[in-house]
Write a protein that binds this DNA or RNA. Structure first.
Lengths: 130, 130
DNA sequence: ATGCACCTTGTAGCCACTACAGGGTCAAGC
DNA sequence: GCTTGACCCTGTAGTGGCTACAAGGTGCAT
């Protein structure tokens, strides 16, 4: 399987696949006579895993850890679960931050009753005069 | 006012202030005999504005626009309001994305009943076998 | 032989900072 | 006058996770 095919199969750009290889997160592929990368079904599985973990918001280092863990079928799930819990907490924190932002932006909008910037409460509140 | 004082007053690192200057978003400061930057109260006001806009999630280009607009006391608020609305929509989109993530992570955690990675549904669902 | 889609490596750019390295300035205390 | 230490200067490189080229090679159909 060539890089373009793998790219289409996983919704990843070829450049990104090569980037994962450089980072050592996706194993090296075999090469054809013409020096094209030749991927196996295992590569497809690993890349799928990487993409799903990335979409869930895990960073590259965490993806690396998750990949390592996923190879050890005999180990307890505990570590994996802890990582997922940690990521969940991180996402919750981000949602809370954004919700605060949302409220503030919405409050600003409601506060603008003027129609000239000179009296605009939006601009005022950005200036820190509130 | 020297850079460290301005930094403390606004909760900004000195490096960041110099970065804003390089970017042309914060006007050049006067210099003392010893070549230290010497900031005015206007600089303090501008930097406060920049920081508040950044905290609200506006990008640098948008901050630049907001600064330009805030100087035109006679202009209608419309443009400013539109930018705030746009930012609000952006924040809503991010909250929606994160909420989806949150649900998926939480679903994964609940699904893990096994105690060995070999049977772990968390690892399974990352692998795309679900 | 030609065209075209695909592949190769290598390098630079994105955003908004942040972190140095290597040096200069200034005020206080001895 | 000299040292100490806090502060400042410029310039450059790094962060994360890609993405976008440039310049060239390969493979297959016509």
């Amino acid at each position: 399987m060539r890089i373009g095919e793998l790219a289409r199969a996983t919704g990843t750009k070829a450049e990104t696949i090569r980037y994962y290889e450089r980072e050592g997160i996706l194993p090296l592929a075999d090469r054809t006579d013409g020096n094209y990368r030749d991927y196996s079904p295992e590569h497809l599985a690993t890349l799928t895993f990487i993409r799903r973990a990335r979409e869930l918001g895990f960073g590259m280092e965490q993806v690396r850890l998750l990949l390592d863990l996923s190879d050890r079928a005999d180990k307890p799930c505990e570590e994996v679960d802890l990582m997922v819990e940690g990521q969940l907490a991180e996402v919750d924190r981000k949602i809370a931050d954004l919700t605060r932002l949302r409220e503030e932006l919405s409050r600003m909008l409601r506060s603008c009753q003027a129609d000239r910037i000179g009296e605009c409460r939006v601009v005022e509140s950005l200036s820190g005069r509130r």
